[in-house]
Design a protein around this nucleic acid. Structure first.
Lengths: 159, 159
DNA sequence: TCATGATAATCAGGTAAGCTTATTAAATTC
DNA sequence: GAATTTAATAAGCTTACCTGATTATCATGA
């Protein structure tokens, strides 16, 4: 065995972390009876942030295919958390908007997210965490770039 | 909309990055005809690193259930990349070992992994990258902790 | 020593998050 | 106004997990 095998490289770490987050999220979702899967929650947050958007735009921002988004929206719409409104400017398109009922759910998602973040960041000092987040954004943009995905300028406040 | 909505938080970034990595990996796997899925590849690398291990130990190290690992191993074994050898010390258990044929595949996986890493790290200076990796490890350990998963001391060389 | 309970692996079956390909209706372009 | 492109979706697939039940074996305490 001449080769050195390392399971602590970037790709492994990222994959592990994502799986741990998903598992934790699933557990909390089960406990709190929030009634949404991780993907649906992600969709809802993106929709909330985007305001009134076409599906194709939202899909591109989320980095998923139109069809994938369409399924998430089906379930969110069935639960009354988003609406699909025909775009007056293009009869092929829908505008996605969140409903008032979504507010409470968004609050729940955000507090779950904050709680996971706190656990993840334990023992890391705040300045280091900010640095870390900014590298994460760079990495995401690097990876998203040659995928046809539009580059994101980081707009909101970091957290 | 009184709430500030941010899609650049830790959880979102981590999820995005993991999806991008997976997609990229899938694309490369398709191109190079390596014949393994991401999960199988991950299993193979962990097995290579572990030497001769019981399945339950390997599963725990990988952070998956025993059954999940069992399926991965079925496919790796069918491709002749690992063997299940009865553990002489416990007739319930198997010892997993990689075969010689696995060496080439491991090499391929490692170079894919390196290439993704290079792309991810573009524009980030090496010292910053090391810092970043070390925070990633802390985060993984933080998240893995209260999940029953054993804490990992970071053993190998970072990269 | 033997009944009881724990453990290692696996069978059966399920779910969630993606994907691709094809279709339809509407918009755009030449 | 014919040909192309685009927005959404239907249909169906794959991967990576999971849980619960089952079987064989091991460990333990009376």
């Amino acid at each position: 065995m001449a080769r050195k095998i390392d399971t602590d490289t970037f790709g492994f770490l990222a994959t592990d972390i994502s799986r741990l987050i998903r598992a934790d999220l699933d557990r909390r979702i089960g406990e709190t009876g929030i009634g949404l899967t991780a993907g649906e929650g992600r969709t809802l947050i993106h929709a909330a942030r985007a305001g009134s958007v076409r599906q194709n735009v939202l899909a591109e921002r989320m980095g998923v295919e139109a069809m994938t988004l369409s399924s998430f929206l089906d379930r969110l719409e069935a639960r009354g958390l988003v609406t699909r409104r025909p775009d007056p400017a293009d009869r092929r398109a829908n505008l996605i908007e969140i409903t008032e009922a979504a507010d409470a759910v968004i609050g729940d998602i955000q507090s779950m997210s904050a709680s996971i973040r706190h656990r993840a960041a334990r023992g890391i000092d705040p300045a280091e965490w900010e640095r870390f987040l900014s590298v994460l954004k760079t990495v995401r943009n690097n990876l998203a770039e040659q995928r046809g995905e539009p580059q994101r300028r980081s707009p909101g406040s970091a957290s």
